[in-house]
Design a protein around this nucleic acid. Sequence first.
RNA 1: GGAGGCAUAGCUCAGCUGGUUAGAGUACCUGCUUGACAUGCAGGGGGUCGAUGGUUCAAGUCCAUUUGUCUCCACCA
Length: 870
Amino acid sequence: MRKELEKVYAPKQFEDRIYRFWMEKGCFRGVIDPEKKPYTIVIPPPNITGQLHMGHALDETLQDILIRFKKMQGYAALWVPGTDHASIATEAKIVERMKEEGLTKEDVGREGFLTRAWAWKEQYGGRIVEQLKKLGSACDWSRERFTLDEGCSKAVREVFFRLYEEGLIYRGERIINWCPHCCTSISDAEVEYEEQAGHFWHIRYPLADGSGSLELATTRPETLLGDTAVAVHPDDPRYRHLVGKTVILPIVHREIPIVADEYVDPEFGTGVVKITPAHDPNDFEVGRRHDLPVINVMTDDAKIVEDYPKYAGMDRYDARRAIVEDLKAEGVLGEVEDHVHNVGTCYRCGTTVEPRVSLQWFVKMKPLAGPAIEAVKNGETRFVPERFEKIYFHWLENIRDWCISRQLWWGHRIPAFYCDDCGEMLVTDSTAPVCPKCGKEMRQDPDTLDTWFSSALWPFSTLGWPDDTEDYRYFYPTDTLVTGYDIIPFWVMRMMFSGLKQTGKAPFHTVLIHGLVRDEQGRKMSKSLGNGIDPLEVIDRYGADALRFMLANGNSPGNDMRYSDDKVKAGRNFANKLWNAARFILMNLSDNITEVKLPAELEDKWVLTRLQRLIGEATENLERYELGVALSKITDFLWDIFCDWYIEVVKPRLQEGGKTAEDAQQVLLTVMSAALRLLHPFMPFITEEIWQAIPHDAESIMEAPWPEVDEGLIFSDDAASFEAVIETIRGIRNVRAEKNIPPSRKSTVYIETAEGSLFQQGAPFYQRLASAGEVLIADRFDDLPDAIQVVTDKAKVYLPMGDLIDLAAEKERLTRERDKVVDELKRLNGKLANENFVNRAPAAVVDAERQKLKKAEERLKNIEESLAKL
RNA sequence: GGAGGCAUAGCUCAGCUGGUUAGAGUACCUGCUUGACAUGCAGGGGGUCGAUGGUUCAAGUCCAUUUGUCUCCACCA
């Protein structure tokens, strides 16, 4: 059944309705079909704490374009949606909320806390999903997943067991990044560095034998409480003789050794370094090499521990001030320099990270990184654009073991159990194991896993792995992963090594990387700046299609883009244009019009030829992930070729009625139908709404086939002829505009040409499109009145306009044109006279130049003949 | 310290593996109640493609150097 189109393009009136229609029809469902090839994308699962922002909007739009395109191309397309439990972010939210009630985690206990967290998830976790729907995302919601659901949890445990069995997961005391605010360890990838102004305090450590002192410099004097050595370079002549002696640690007055270690740079500072293995990653390594004790001086929330009564309970910065004062009092403080250095901060809360030795679980990375590097090197997986492979390699080649335990409750609990009696440890799927050694009840590790541990399994855990499901067999490996460059190290890399390790296959063959959406001034959109643009507001004002247009148009892979209201408006305007073109066609469409088989007129052949070219090019661009290029070609075609030329040219035929009108209607329908389908991946709502209104086969445009090039509708010569007509019309418009002649003032048009039949076909258009009165065509006109002249390579056009004609000006204008053509001829002749060019350039290029030369020569001849008549 | 991006019309940006006289949107200027659309139509001005050098018959496109700018990584205590 055909529907009417409203007079005004008002996306709000149909976008939600159409989304429901798709849902009810099951258009988004990925259906296993052995006859088809699968095409799978898994969504980068947004955090349940999140709201849709422009970054999501871009990410989802790109995925949606690919899914819709592939589906129309006949693939069994599946887009798996879902959300991420986001352990730190969510836990922080819940803790915050409890704080308002005056409660802490400890007050409610683990069970109570998790109950609250799940309740929160039920209440708010669906928000972002609803927002994705507003965008038009063609996700298979029947397969929606959550990183903490039963299936994902099973996959997580399975991977944990496997890696543990192989010794790739281990528990140990290592130095890790600790966030004193979130009170948990975080991984290297979760640390962000920022420049901070600080100081460089010089401190003298007296030698134990009283023979003097060693001066060193530090940015963190408070850590001296945990110093267990000072180090110098083994070859440093200044200090070599002191190695093996001891110094007295100021304030604490502990005797600590002087060690020699290559790590020390003699050129930097005084060439002496205090070693605090518990609070600095490098010092930790030095400590291991020299078997130094590790003294932790801080609590979980970065306060000084009770072993140092004078500072106990002081926050690390207060302790710093106090210790500096005490050093001064002790007379060991030297120079204090200003110093700018980079400080690690928690990506979540911005708190300065405290490196800290602690007992954590780790994944051994080296054995996993190798295959992940290899898979990209050998092309099993490729990045678009390619340059991001470098970032990927860099991370994997320099990777350290991954700290996966988090001191949080919201997440996948580590399946390890300890016997408090005998110290036995057991990794098991059982929920209440007994100690295999002493038979006692065991206590489960209180920690949970890094959120990214479960995200890393997303491409296969969502498809049923570790079970051998139909989905997994058919849809895995997935095809394209779409994500921002900022999460390559967090996610892409980890999915790669996890997929390769667990499934033996790379989880996807292509990683399509996009950039950030910045604000109009080019700044990163952020909460603190308050410059974020809410995509939902934009959709509310302009429609989802306009927003999607803005995000896809003029954006190329890997590059950042700027949001701007004007760009969204451009999208809305284009939608409006398309809307009105469709309305125009519907107004003029007789019953039982079918798509064209044999185009009748020149303009029909032209527009169909251009359409075939568009189909070929847009398809190729899409296949190469050049989405923005494809969209702008489709837009240009619809607006310039179809609306501004074809529809205008064909209006008189539609008025006339009869066969010629029906022929035109067939072409209008053919072109509209194909162009709608080409545009559909980018602007799904409006294309569906129009699709429903025009005669159509498939019930939904989503089920319509992607257009293919029809060789039978390519008419190169006719198309070229029509271009000549267009050129002439443009020429007439130009001179009329130049002379400010109002359209109401018509003029007889004399066309002097050797190709009379061609221009005869174009004759009706001059009246409509070039304000022509009578049109006369001949090989030669004698005794023409004075006229304005338009000269192309195929014709001389005369516009006798009585009082408007200034012969001297005409002569000048034509002379200028002649000079231009002469210059061009000179250039072309020069090029073609160059033997190197003719011999070495491809024949096609040389031919094209010869064609140009011919055209220019014709044009020059015509101009000169015209001039002669003046 | 290392790596990379970007630099093209006033503004925002396309320009794929080098091949017309470098494009679009927007802004600007001039006309237009052209019965689909003023969210529009027609026309116009505006760029020595950051700089220098090189490769090539041919460079916005490839190479080197350089300037500005942004980002990522490392983090010398």
